[in-house]
Design a protein around this nucleic acid. Structure first.
Lengths: 231, 231
DNA sequence: TAATATATGGTCATTCTGACTATAAGTAAA
DNA sequence: TTTACTTATAGTCAGAATGACCATATATTA
């Protein structure tokens, strides 16, 4: 009744790929790695790799993300399994895609041993990627657009303390639309999701804005019960 | 560069399981099959099986659902991959769960060759299932609850022509809540999703209600742009 | 001191919501 | 044939939310 294979050996038919979103200066970015070895060496791809027999699929996603980019302890959630029979050359591989939200400033990218480079790309200026990775990215972006309107997950893309304008620009970047500043604030206020840090922005050449953090308790409630972020 | 295995042989590490919801007489049901052979013979389970090298994961889900229950051409969408290393005995198997919405009356269940029985169970009276199938079911039910509030997918559970009360009872069953009849109608009316068939209900012992069908064009728009079904 | 950039708060007509009420149109029981 | 019962369908109304604005405050830089 025991697993006949070593827990460290990989499951040949299964891989992981991560769609990692970052946010900086009002732009929504996506993290890509350049393959250092294998059949797609030199090409850009979503960070990913193989699952072993000893770990859960979720754990594999965490491990791979960390080993390829140095990023850990972030919002990481399963997106979808991609299982077209011809999506991968050489053999049949189904990949389980994950998506993650990162505050870009908090992490310095450290390309791992199978990646020669790791870099942020504007989500609208992505190069051609290997296999079906462009499709996976597209799917992930659409998923994010939908999800951000019903759950307060966008905060994972911001630093711990942020201004209301930063938050608004984040939503504008994701949803590709312009929002009314005053109405946006009113809506956020009623949600009770934000806590005023009683601090001011620094080093800006205009009136400094108040800094906010978000209330994790309310966050849990809103995630459970859903919310409506029609802006 | 060719796949070294026969397209009909199965991918050992991957399976499919389907969470199939049905609706009848105001009750939300779930379809289960009783295994006829193998290590879990005699036990209830979600309908599922193995993926072959020659088919996509989506196609495998369709094939398995049809061969186990006789049901085809329905709303079937991927739910999530479940990948705990110990979820399946004997060997390491990751399963890709799908969920489907069916109008119960439109199909007669035909247990397939590896299932000795196929039967609808009230979603709140489900027996103990094999492996992690109770967890998968739970996940699927929560997913449905969320999704039904942002996309007009509930209609897949109803017959082609239905009354407004039937639609309301469907939402009440899924969301486990009571809704105000008058407000429900007003909201549906504004959505422009329903088309009056200009027909009346028959064989009821009270005033007959108008029958409606739903507008597939509006449906596509609402799925794309999202909607809010706060009732 | 003026120009300008952003912050922050407020107005107001319109629409939406939730809780109710009222009437209509059928069947079934008295 | 009248009455009871069931569901259908329409309407009311106060309060909340929305979208498009406007006004003022506070900071830096020319």
């Amino acid at each position: 009744m025991e697993n006949p294979v070593h827990p460290d050996s990989i499951i040949e038919a299964l891989s992981i790929d991560c769609v990692i979103f970052g946010f900086k200066d009002g732009r929504l970015d996506i993290l890509l790695v350049k393959h250092a070895e294998g059949i797609s060496a030199g090409k850009w791809a979503l960070p990913g790799g193989w699952i072993t027999y000893g770990e859960s699929v979720d754990d594999a996603a965490k491990r791979l993300l960390k080993s390829l980019t140095g990023i850990s302890d972030i919002y990481l959630e399963q997106l979808k399994a991609f299982g077209d029979p011809n999506r991968f050359p050489l053999k049949r591989v189904v990949t389980v895609a994950y998506y993650a939200l990162v505050n870009e400033e908090s992490y310095s990218l450290i390309p791992g041993f199978t990646a020669s480079d790791a870099q942020w790309f504007n989500v609208h200026e992505v190069p051609e990627l290997i296999y079906d990775h462009n499709q996976i990215l597209e799917f992930g972006y659409n998923h994010l657009k939908h999800k951000v309107r019903h759950e307060p997950i966008g905060f994972n893309l911001l630093p711990a303390k942020f201004t209301l304008l930063q938050l608004q620009e984040l939503y504008e970047a994701i949803l590709e639309t312009r929002l009314d500043k005053s109405n946006f604030r009113r809506k956020l206020g009623k949600m009770k999701l934000l806590i005023n840090c009683k601090e001011k922005q620094k080093d800006v050449s205009h009136r400094a804005a108040a800094l906010f953090k978000f209330d994790k308790r309310i966050y849990v409630t809103l995630r459970r019960n859903g919310m409506v972020f029609e802006l």
